[in-house]
Write a protein that binds this DNA or RNA. Sequence first.
DNA 1: TGTACATCAGTGAACGCGCGTTCACTGATGTAC
DNA 2: TGTACATCAGTGAACGCGCGTTCACTGATGTAC
Lengths: 195, 195
Amino acid sequence: MDPTPSRKQLTHDRIVETAAGVMREAGFWGVGVADVMKRAGLTHGGFYAHFASRDALLCEAIAHAGRDSAARLAKSTAQRQARGASPLRALVDAYLSEGHLAASTQGCPVAALASEMPRQSAEVAAAATVRVRALVDAVGRTLPADAAEQASVVAAQLVGALQLARALGDNAEGRALLAATRRNVLAQFDTAPAR
Amino acid sequence: MDPTPSRKQLTHDRIVETAAGVMREAGFWGVGVADVMKRAGLTHGGFYAHFASRDALLCEAIAHAGRDSAARLAKSTAQRQARGASPLRALVDAYLSEGHLAASTQGCPVAALASEMPRQSAEVAAAATVRVRALVDAVGRTLPADAAEQASVVAAQLVGALQLARALGDNAEGRALLAATRRNVLAQFDTAPAR
DNA sequence: TGTACATCAGTGAACGCGCGTTCACTGATGTAC
DNA sequence: TGTACATCAGTGAACGCGCGTTCACTGATGTAC
């Protein structure tokens, strides 16, 4: 967009990006003003030159996390499609991959934060809802036309499986849940022939 | 068990029960020692006569929340079975009911807390994992014998649907997601004839 | 090109507050004789 | 049954700490002439 972002804009973006990572790793409550500024290589005093409040940072951070995760997912999905996978299979395999299970810091913020979302302030909760809808839409684009209204059902299944796998610990039990969910979703909704 | 619990035991239980509600309403981070004691009708100074630490309370509270929720779910499920529903249908309809959507304070702690579980201390995370397994087991008991290994898949679907419905706001969108998930799970796994 | 000044991004000390935790104490309960 | 004392559950003040937020200041960047 802006070909020559200002120094301030670059710093602002760096703070948001840092917070987006911390948020997915440590939750909304794990995002501290002083900690994020330090990780971004700054002192905490300058924070309020960039954001009106901590909540304003959370809003920008969850939006950034959502776009970042969506971009990574799109890339991974495209690679799988290039190797012959159907759009749905590509998405499901990418979302329920072991890489995504382990790398929550760069992963989907809905999976990382869903149960905390309803407890946030109105603005933050609204920004979170936007990311939920974006995930549902991304799933919907990979479903057959006659199953489009099932997008939220499949999205819920993906999110739930990733969360329970993480809650069970990053072990065989969790990986088995991911694999079983992949098979379950594809068996129901994938029109392409099984490989 | 104990026919005449001591005064201290009664107080202890009251604190745990209070914390189990606060935890599901406000999350792990929302459980404050002073706040819980005040809600239980006590002053915060006496807390450490009952628990070694805040974490120790969290461990007891999540166990209590899980048993409490399981008992409510079992009761609701039994009523639905008495009206002719299959075990699976009874469980799914109870878990994905609009009552459960709205009443997170008395609801399933896995749905209320899943994304926060991996971020807790080792002891609290372990106590949380126990509740995840208990939910999976409860689902497994309602599945046909040939689908038992799908219990965690279905549990993930139930948890994910409730969480996304809550994250979308307690509105038509959320209720539609619950209804669609009920239909989806039953269409896949319910051997009893559709009503 | 060089100097003088205004603007701006970031610094670091300070604030009030609520947190988890500790502890000396109080008042009620229960036991001994 | 009545008194003396030990035990116990809960009180309330205090602690150190980290939080979000504020603000006077510094040093670098950019503009005017």
